[in-house]
Amino acid sequence: MKKKVLFIIGTLQSGGVSKSMVNLLNAWDREKYNTSLLLCSKEGDVFSKYLPEDVNVIYSPVVENVMGGFSSAKWLFLHGYLLLSIGVLLRLILSRVSKSLSGELIAKMMPIVSNEHYDLVVDYGGQQLLYYMVNKLSATRKVSFFHNDYSKWSYYYSADKKYYPRLDNIFSISKTCTDALKKYFPNCAEKVSIMENISSPSMIQAQAEDYTDDLRVMLQEYKNDGNNIFCTVAHFCQRKGGDFAIEAAEILKKQHIKFKWLFVGKVLEQDLFNSIKEKGLVEDMIFVGIQSNPYPYMKLSDIYIQPSRFEGKSISLDEAKILCKPIVVTNFSTVGDQFENGKNGTICEMSGKAVANAVIELINNPSLQDSYRMYLGTHIVDNSSEVNKLYKYL
């Protein structure tokens, strides 16, 4: 009989973790292993259409609403889950005091959705999903992923330190990220290892050609009007440097540089978005929303910009590299895991002024753009073999 494997993820909304999960499942040997995915929330689902058809998706609306807010508490109450409804309200209050205790409470409230015994369960989201996996699911081996630099995201430390020792392995996505985990959890250091986000060059390059005539015409009109085309794939918020982007755009406009800056993702902080209107940048900063296929926007742009404050190992940046785009990226803690300044991209300091100066340098130096494209074109890596690191637990 085939061995049974269960993956767990919170959501398949837009974002690097969701995209990475889908890429992993597409690379996974599903003929050899009976593969299931526990999807905790269908809200804003973007990537499920890219899931392989032979992956068994497990979903419970009770699980989704246990993880939600006031509207979820109402849904639980109306469907007869009075105690869970009260629990959600308590958890919303508790989250203001302790994210760890809040996460543990969510895990306790989540119902057991499968009584199967699995050969391997893989928590791909961490926090409450980790605690739920350890406490409520039966498996021979259990592993977890943490997709960021723990030193920048240690809110769940008091809970994680109780659960990480109970795992067979803890994966993160870069050396900087694994070093941080080893520092915070020295008793688990031997269990911590790297498994990179999986990016398939052939799939990305093929999807990048799948652009609509409307998009092509729009960008051609921008070009004909003398605009430089920039692209950023990320939710618009301070964590992803939305304020740096606004400051940079304001500087570029004052220096009479014509541009259209495309933002692919969700606006998470309305106050930032409002400041774009206040500064008269509405026609320059173009928000196209969440796109299940962002690659045409990336491919048709002149420069890819990632002005983030924090990243684990950005899958969007790996994809921009595969598409051989000249890249400007801020000097967040893990940037050295993906870039060498002046070799495969421009690393600048964390400010709008620095982002603007780096963009201006690239615009005025076509030979530097060409050198980035040539280097990236000869260093494209298909890392689908990263899945082998999970096979050893089966």
Rank of each mutant, 00 (worst) to 15 (best):
Q13Y: 06
K253A: 00
S193L: 08
E319Q: 06
H235R: 13
M374E: 11
S60T: 08
F185N: 06
G15Q: 04
D119N: 15
F287C: 01
L181F: 01
S172T: 12
D210S: 09
K240V: 11
I8F: 00
Q291F: 07
A208C: 00
E190N: 12
V233H: 06
G312Y: 03
S98L: 00
I106K: 07
A234Y: 00
Q128Y: 14
S333Y: 00
L51Q: 10
H147R: 15
I322R: 08
Y118H: 05
I276L: 15
S202V: 12
V88R: 01
D302E: 02
L300E: 03
L215Y: 14
N148Q: 13
S71Y: 07
L76E: 09
K152G: 04
H79C: 13
A245W: 06
E278Y: 09
T346D: 02
P52M: 05
Y163D: 02
E283I: 01
G352F: 08
L82H: 07
D160G: 06
K299T: 04
Y184V: 03
N115A: 07
S138E: 13
L25Y: 04
I8T: 01
F230M: 10
C324N: 15
S154Q: 04
V57Y: 04
M203N: 12
M109T: 04
N34G: 08
Y372S: 07
I246Q: 07
E53N: 09
P201Y: 13
S72I: 01
Q338E: 01
N364S: 02
I204S: 05
S333T: 14
E278H: 02
V55I: 15
A320M: 00
K183R: 06
N115L: 04
D160R: 05
E190L: 11
G10T: 14
S385H: 10
F287D: 02
D29I: 09
E221F: 05
G377I: 00
S200K: 07
L268E: 14
L94M: 15
R30W: 09
T176K: 13
G15S: 01
L137S: 03
K321H: 13
V267Q: 04
I315P: 06
Q369T: 03
R91N: 15
C324M: 13
E116R: 07
Q127H: 15
S102Y: 11
G242C: 12
I251H: 09
W75H: 14
Y59G: 11
C324P: 05
Q127A: 15
Y132D: 12
D179I: 06
L323N: 15
M195S: 10
D213P: 01
K260F: 06
L94Q: 12
